[in-house]
Amino acid sequence: MTRRIHLHAGPRDHWIAGFAALAIVIHILEAGVPTPIPGIKPGLANVITLVVLLRHDLLAAIWVQLLRVLVGSVLIGSFLTPTFLLSLSGALCSLAILALLIGWNRLLPPARVGPIGLGVAAACAHMGGQFFVAYTAFIPHPGLLTLLPVLLTAAMLFGALTGWLAGALCLRLDNSPDAAAPAR
């Protein structure tokens, strides 16, 4: 006996897939840009994650982020390699921090963390988680620690940039006459 399972993609699935596709394209374009120090890259794909988080909800942002890591690695060819594990651990850490900060914003609306703060915190958490896995699992050498402050400085700068971009993009989307009400 075989039973057919019907999966219906609702409108929410469609727009999550659309945002994830955007993030994947940015992720792959960025993978082609050479960087001076391994581990430093702008992380512009996170602009999409942040926009989804700001305009929609945390669950959608988690979907977009994890789909981006998974499909991005399959397309680049790094699926299940150390690079993928680093990328995944970084993504999970940044999502955890974003979840915490969203909770904070709900509890204390006057002391809200804005897009720039979210971007910086997510980028630093991403770098921190990635570094922790790299240090404990792959290269347990004290020399690696020398890189940590440099990597975190870069994460902070690029995090502020992606946060600012995400915030500016949200403002534009809110004011755009073409923008339909955020799909739920």
Binding site: A111, R112, V113, G114, P115, I116, G117, V120, A121, C124, P149, L152, T153, M156, A160, W164, G167, A168, L171
Partner: peptide
């Protein structure tokens, strides 16, 4: 797009750690 006071506090905290 301006940082909120909480953003500034967060950035200062992280800068101290770094």
């Amino acid at each position: 797009m301006k940082p909120t006071p909480a953003d500034v506090a967060l950035i200062i905290g992280l800068a101290l750690i770094i």
